[in-house]
Design a protein around this nucleic acid. Structure first.
Lengths: 194, 194
DNA sequence: GTTTTTGTTGATTGACGAGTCAATAAACTT
DNA sequence: AAGTTTATTGACTCGTCAATCAACAAAAAC
């Protein structure tokens, strides 16, 4: 009973399943069969649509980055003024959608993937660049020359908070993460204000 | 020509080789044969001494943690006063020995390992705990009640700087990392001083 | 109504890799 | 000197898994 136009649906299901499985298993050692099973199809079909496991991983990364990008853009649209924009970026970074065990676990593994797969590295750099320029846009009016190092530090802090989330048991504490980041920001800005 | 008392020597060689190979390949997908070859022996011998690949990984983690611990202790011994102790911890964290591609790459992969292997998680928590208490010891006299969140943030920042090191091409910039962390620290302390 | 395109899978291939084992040899023990 | 312990490896087993293929089904195109 093959219905037509399945391709996008199946691909989407596979991408989702890839993220879930990587998050669940906690490593990139997930088999195509596992992923395909979770997505409700045979492994052969997964290969049919993606060609290789690596392509599946990359598609999953792109998806997470896209989601994150959309979330940031949405939050930025509602913000006005540099300070509010900075808050928006942080809120999006630690939003319920992004800052959950599953996604964070996948994220960590993408970092590992980036060590071997150039395209993965490229994608991660795109993310870093976007984050950086978003932060800089908010910071420059507030901190002038000192914006660059502050953005650097804040970016690292965000990544570090993600990393620590992985080790924790229990549910993610988004409040705490946002507070920590805001705290950093405030102490920096106070130092820079006239 | 079997000389006696080889066990510790071979184990040490394997541990070293494990770290190098993980760092080189950039993932935990290194074969026991690769590691054994680099350590100058057969894979059978590696299994003979460690029993399993997982044990090898854990031994490598313990080794890195031990080195790091020793470095911190050494630096702390020379320091006097809380501020100087904080600097010592940071300097050790970004020392040439710890903050090099190879070690950082291995570190990242241990994080991944911690998601699956409970003992790896335990070890990483030990590291976090030590770092935390070292930072707190220095921070409490300077920041009182605010010491805890500052330590939390600083810990995450250090991990984040490690993480970012992985993505960079070119040699590690220890200066920059230390400066960034010190910067964070200073802006925090200024805010807390009377 | 036949041909082509799209969807789908069970079965198979081929490679690779962790862990085991039997065998060999040197050194230590008694 | 006979026996035991330690060191060492090549060859083998056994599983697993990515990727391919042949085959089948339904819709679309002609």
């Amino acid at each position: 009973m093959p219905k037509l136009g399945m391709e996008p649906i199946r691909k989407a299901a596979l991408v989702k399943a890839t993220i879930v499985e990587i998050g669940r298993v906690g490593s990139l050692d997930v088999t195509v069969s596992q992923i395909a099973k979770r997505a409700g199809m045979s492994s052969a079909l997964a290969h049919h649509y993606f060609g290789s496991k690596e392509e599946m991983f990359l598609a999953a990364m792109r998806h997470i980055l896209t989601l994150y990008g959309a979330e940031v853009r949405g939050a930025l649209a509602l913000a006005d003024g540099p300070e509010s924009r900075l808050r928006a970026v942080l809120a999006a970074s630690f939003s319920a959608a992004n800052f959950r065990r599953e996604a964070v676990g996948a994220w960590l593994n993408f970092w590992v993937l980036a060590q071997t797969v150039p395209e993965a590295k490229r994608l991660l750099k795109v993310y870093q660049g976007r984050l950086r320029s978003n932060l800089l846009a908010g910071l420059r009016p507030l901190a002038g020359d000192r914006a660059v190092p502050i953005a650097e530090g804040l970016g690292a802090l965000i990544d570090g908070l993600y990393l620590r989330e992985v080790l924790k048991s229990g549910p993610p504490d988004r409040e705490l993460a946002v507070t920590t980041a805001l705290n950093y920001l405030n102490s920096k800005l106070e130092g820079a204000r006239p």
